[in-house]
Every structure is written in structure tokens, then in C-alpha cells.
Design a protein around this nucleic acid. Structure first.
Lengths: 316, 316
DNA sequence: GATTTTCCATAAATTTAAATTTTTCAAATA
DNA sequence: TATTTGAAAAATTTAAATTTATGGAAAATC
């Protein structure tokens, strides 16, 4: 290795001698013997081809070159200390960044609460939430742009094997009606009743839309027969549409808690129909796991996980 | 020794890997084997309790902690490079300060030429010339305030032993007369002629004055009988006085070269009288000798030294 | 889809460097 | 002159870094 003309240890010794004015005292300060100090300074002087100390008298005095070197020495050692501090902060979660991925629903209704909890405990870690499609989120986790993510859709096959996928929670999609809708009075609807409704649906690109369609189809419904009033690309827009009496929709229950409480929207029960999807936690096992990511997974996620999730099991 | 969490070598390796994106390439760049690089990074990661590189894929990618460390790393290594440059400059005389001491005569007529020559070769070394009495110059050399000095007088006994005193040159003090003076026509004066002259002398504090008086006395003259027209404390003032016809004087030949050439002053020869003093180079052997001082002593001083000087001998 | 190549990790052995102990030397103090 | 203090020198021990050799996993090539 093309050698550097000095080592950090030598600089530390130099600084100590300059401060103490004596090789012996510097040695005591650094818990080494005096010859060790002498040797290192000699090496330093040989390497740089300068004389650093005037050892004539009782005190070791810096030469001009020594003073020059000491200036740099102190700057370098300060930078080293700073670097150590920064790393320590990162280790103790007093810094750093956590990047979380999520789908529209989770990102809008679940993540804010989780992130809030996390930030309460670790206010110095900055958290980024990236809301993307399942597909894109999957790839971002794969190449390390996202530390961890919660998705509701199906990953492409190749990613499925690459990533660690842990069942996390069950997201129930409820049939919601305008509160003034005639069918809102019935305790329980039949599947056939769905054909009478006008639906406000998510746009067909959406993962949630695909999941809902698939689940309805699996339960024996003919989704072609369902009347579509309009397609919107935002859950909030759909909620507003439903509240305005424009139609019905299947929405994640987590997204309508407030509206249910306020009575501005009606949640209907349909006999023999459960529209549920599994939310999954995905991480990249072949990548470095940041301290912040670790903590989030171990301490925050389990609090919102369903009982069946492996994350929950760990805690018990 | 209370250990530092990293070494400069480790930082250099870190930087190389980050730049090359590969352990192997970094190893090649640094002319070491790949395991050496791997082990050093592992040590670094262990020490700091962080993961620095994501070794998963084809390329070694920095983690967040790695990026943080790299920032400091580059700053630290830059400072190191700068320090090296500064030291090199000092070594190659592209910086630093040389402090030279001299007596009035040498400082006025000899040093400017020497310093000029030195500065021509080493324009980046700043040179200070301090003109003081022999006594004060001696002490300044002793305690390191002056790197080297040329003196014409006698050092106090204790300094004589402390310092290195090297015969340097012979300073001839010539009897000078106004060019219109009647005695200017004589080829050679006799000692008795001196009693007929009016002298313009240096003030009695001056080392040169003391030396001249002593030399005259040693050669058998009664200095009490010499008529003193006036006493001045500047050689230039005396030269002007002589040129104006106010009197004669003993002046260092180096100080009257220009006037002799212009014919405005006359240099007289006195039979059986040589007024010469030894100029001596003094240095402090127990102190650090700066590179600039070394070069001045070896390359510049000999060019103006008398043939008998040890400085001259070295060159032959 | 099997093979080759690339890249990093690991283990053992060698080499190199650095620290310590003991001793010596020089200068300053008493 | 004797004594103390601080630095250098030499020899031994200890530690650390490098190399050589080997193995395994992921890409790239055929």
C-alpha cells in the first residue's frame, strides 16, 4: 500500500506532547511508555523529513515545522472525533433516515399512526414514507431504496422469492353506502343486492381494485354485472362520492373509521361475503438492515399487527 | 493507548472501495490483496458497530452509515494531504521564515546582497534581518529568536561556549579621506600622519568603534592624541561627513565601494597599519536548524566568505 | 441450463510493525 | 559533585496486518 506519511496515533502523540511539553507526560497521558512515544515521533520525523520537537532543554518545544504540523493535526483529530460522534448517534438512533414503503391505503391510514409512534420514541431519526404501487414498492425494497414496506397486493413472482414476505394484518374491505340509501336500513344484504347498486370504484390500475374484483369474483359474483357509476383514483374522493349519495363502494375499514363514527357513511353487511386481503410486510434479507429499520420492525409494527402475524408471535 | 476507532489506512480503503464500487478493484488500486481490504473493512465495521457496505449485489454499495462515514473520511484525508503539502513546501523551501542577525555594517552592506541571492533561489521563504549589537544578537541566537548571525565584535564569554562560532570573513577598515584632502595625494601615509587628521568617528557605544580603537591601539598608536571632529552613530552619516571634507575616518571597505568608484572619497594606505577584524558566523548547535537556515549557510554564505573561512573550505 | 467468471469471505502462515522492559546518556538541579 | 529528570538505544515480547490458498455465491457467457 502506498504509504501515508503519518498515522492517527502519531498525530495523537504529537498533540499530547505539544500540550504537555514533555514526552514523558504525554506517555503517561496516553497510557504508554516513554520510549513508545519517542519512537513514534522519531518515525514521524523520519517520514516527513522534518524536526518536530526541540528536545534541548527541560521542555520539548515545537519547531516551526512542528507548529505547522500541529495545526493540521488538531483539525484532523477533531474531524475524527466528529465522525465518531455522528456514527454513535446513528447507532443510538439519534440520526439517520428510515424509508418506509406502503400502498395507498396503508400509507394513508395506517402508516401515519405508526410513524407517529416511532417518531415519539426516536425523534432524531427522519422517516420517509413512499406511497407507490405494490409492484414499484417491491422493486424499491429489492434494490434497497426502501427499508421495509407493507403491501396489500400480489408481488411479481421473481420478487416473491427475493424478498422476505411476512403476513402482517388483515385488511377488511367493507361495502359502504350513502347513509340515506334505501338499503342502509337492512341489517344484512344479499349478494344479489349488489347488482342493484351503483358503484364508485377505484380506477382499474389500482392494486386494491384488482384485489377487490378478484375476491368478489371468487365468492361467485359476476363483476361484469355490477354497475359502475364512476371510477376515481383516490380513496378520499370515493369516500366523498359515497357520502354525497353517488353510489356504493368497497373500502378498507381503516379508511372509514371517522365517517362511520360520524354516521355520514353506512357500512353494510353482506351475507356469505367477506372481502378481506392480507397485508404483508416485505423486507430484503440480502441487504443491510439499518438500526432504525430493525427497531421499527421489532417495536412498532407488532403493535398494529393482527394476532396471526409472526410479528405478533414474537412478542408473546 | 486508548484506541481510536479507525486508522487512516482504513479510511483510505473505505474511500477506494466507495470510488471503485468493488473490494477487488480497491485492492488493486492500493496495491494490496483483496483479503487485506476485506479484513480492514471488517475491522472498521466491528469497531464502529456499523455496516458500511452492502456486499449483496455485483457492486459494493454504501449503506447510510457508510455514506455518513465517507463524508468525514474524505474531509480527513483531504486535511492529511494538505498537511503533507505544507510540510513538503517547508522542506523544499517554499515556505517558512529565516531570521538572520547582523551588526550594523554587515547588515547594511553585506546582508542585503546575500539575502537577495537567497530570495532569488527561494522566493517563498520570507527572510527577516535583525540588526542589533553583537551582544544582543548573540543572546538572540542563543535562545532561538535568530537562526544565524554574522557579528564583528566579541561575544560575552558564556555565549562564546554556548554557540558555534565560525570565522567567516575579514572586514578591512580603511582610512578614508575627503578626496580634496592634501594627504590624498600621497601614495602612503605614515602612522604619525594620523595625528594630523581630524576624525569623524562612530559613537563610542558602537562595536565597530571599539574594535577600531583597539586595533589602532594595538598597532602602537595613542588614540587619545587622535583629534575627533565629531561622533556620529551612522556609517552613512560619517561617509557624508567625510565626503563633505569634514574629516577622516576608518570605515569598512564594504561600505565605501560605491564612493571609491565614484571618486568622491579617498582610501589611504598607512604604512605598517592594517585595521582588520574578523567577521564570525554564529549559530546555536543545540537548537533545531531550519531547512532555510541550512541552505543559507551552505549555499549563500560561502559565496561571500573569505578564503580562510571553514565555510569556504567545505566547497573546495 | 450448465459452465465459467467474478467477487467477496474465511483460515492459516508469514511477515512486519509496534509496544515494553531494561539500560544508557545528557542536562539541569541541588 | 551527586542527584534527578527526560529522552534515546537495544533487545525482547507481543500484536497486527498482509499474503497465500481455499471456498462459496451470484452474474455472465456459452
Amino acid at each position: 500500500m502506498p504509504e501515508l506519511p503519518f498515522t492517527l496515533d502519531q498525530l495523537r502523540i504529537l498533540k499530547a506532547i505539544a500540550a504537555q511539553g514533555s514526552f514523558k507526560k504525554a506517555a503517561d497521558l496516553l497510557y504508554v511508555t516513554q520510549p513508545a512515544v519517542s519512537l513514534q515521533i522519531q518515525n514521524l520525523e523520519k517520514q516527513l523529513e522534518i524536526t518536530i520537537f526541540d528536545r534541548g532543554g527541560r521542555k520539548a518545544l515545537l519547531t516551526e515545522a512542528g507548529r505547522l504540523l500541529l495545526e493540521y493535526c488538531e483539525r484532523i483529530l477533531n474531524q475524527c472525533d466528529e465522525a465518531c460522534k455522528a456514527i454513535e448517534d446513528l447507532n443510538s438512533l439519534k440520526g439517520g433516515t428510515l424509508i418506509i414503503g406502503a400502498s395507498q391505503t396503508t400509507g394513508t391510514y395506517l402508516m401515519p399512526r405508526m410513524i407517529g409512534l416511532f417518531r415519539q420514541k426516536y425523534p432524531d431519526v427522519s422517516v420517509q414514507l413512499q406511497v407507490h404501487s405494490t409492484r414499484r414498492t417491491g422493486w424499491s425494497v429489492a434494490n434497497g431504496q426502501i427499508d421495509l414496506a407493507i403491501i396489500g397486493g400480489q408481488l411479481p413472482g421473481d420478487l416473491e422469492n427475493l424478498l422476505q414476505v411476512i403476513p402482517y394484518a388483515t385488511d377488511e374491505l367493507a361495502l359502504v353506502l350513502p347513509s340515506k340509501h334505501p338499503l342502509s336500513n337492512k341489517k344484512e344484504l344479499l349478494k344479489e343486492d349488489l347488482y342493484k347498486l351503483n358503484f364508485v370504484k377505484l380506477d382499474s390500475q389500482s392494486t386494491t381494485r384488482k384485489v377487490v374484483d378478484k375476491l368478489l369474483q371468487d365468492s361467485g359474483l359476476d363483476i361484469q354485472r355490477l354497475k359502475i357509476e364512476m371510477e376515481l383514483n383516490s380513496l378520499e374522493a370515493i369516500k366523498n362520492a359515497v357520502q354525497s349519495g353517488l353510489g356504493a363502494s368497497f373500502l378498507p375499514v381503516v379508511s372509514i373509521e371517522r365517517e362511520l363514527a360520524a354516521g355520514t357513511i353506512h357500512k353494510a353487511f353482506v351475507a356469505d361475503l367477506e372481502v378481506k386481503r392480507e397485508l404483508k410486510l416485505i423486507t430484503n434479507p440480502s441487504r443491510y438492515t439499518s438500526r432504525a429499520s430493525e427497531v421499527f420492525k421489532k417495536n412498532i409494527l407488532p403493535k398494529f399487527a393482527s394476532l396471526e402475524s409472526p410479528l405478533k408471535q414474537i412478542l408473546i
